[in-house]
Design a protein around this nucleic acid. Structure first.
Lengths: 119, 119
DNA sequence: CGGCTAGTACGGTAACCGCCGTACTACGAT
DNA sequence: ATCGTAGTACGGCGGTTACCGTACTAGCCG
């Protein structure tokens, strides 16, 4: 059966709301190679079918506990949104918020990241 | 007399060339409030008359030695160009290089910074 | 139930960062 | 030559960061 466990788990994760997102914090979050890669992967995944990707969908060159750390940094900076679905944690970019606050920034960064990969 | 001391001083400062500029490093450089302010100020100054501004033209809430540190981070990241003119050190954004490598990024960051200031 | 998978919290370590003061150099002006 | 101004190099200090391993919880499946 299609047991889609929509937004299970009581554990709510703290997210900054739009007005609290600071440019310096966003830039700092994206300035790390691992986190930049996460953002880039989420962008790629997000464009696909149902938006969002689990942490385990993104391959990273660090240990799971370090990955958790990086996801938290991104979430607390306001770059990504995280929610639990079953045992998985689904991540997606906060495009709407970022675009509203800093028009063009996210796209510029993601395109720059993509471009730098092909070099 | 107009003793314009064009590019005096033998001391040459090391700059990365275009191909060496890394996105993560640029983002890291811009992720600090003081350095973001420097970039923003250079943008404002640069648009004016003769391009570039001396370090002392940009007011910063840190000591001179710390300011030196921040300028160096920006230069080594490839965000600014520095050269001596007389006793002053002239700084300007490396627009052409950054725009070529990461189109739209610098403008997005600077506009985001400007926008965040008016809040 | 037991076991699997996904992710976490904790604690520790080594590196880095932002900041400063002090002592110094480089240039221009007097 | 002397002084003042612009910026620097150095060393130190305290806070943050990236990383890991280990031990743990939450949900799913058989």
């Amino acid at each position: 059966m299609e047991r889609v466990p929509t937004t299970t788990t009581g554990r709510e994760l703290p997210h900054p709301d739009r007005a609290e997102i600071r440019l310096e914090t966003v830039l700092h979050a994206l300035a790390d190679p691992v986190r930049l890669r996460i953002a880039h992967s989420l962008d790629a995944f997000g464009e696909g079918a149902g938006q969002g990707a689990a942490c385990s969908d993104v391959e990273l060159p660090v240990s799971p506990s370090t990955a958790t750390h990086h996801y938290r940094v991104l979430r607390e900076a306001g770059v990504i949104n995280q929610c639990y679905r079953g045992t998985a944690k689904i991540n997606c970019l906060r495009r709407a918020d970022l675009d509203a606050l800093f028009p063009g920034l996210l796209d510029a960064v993601l395109r720059a990241a993509a471009r730098q990969l092909k070099r």
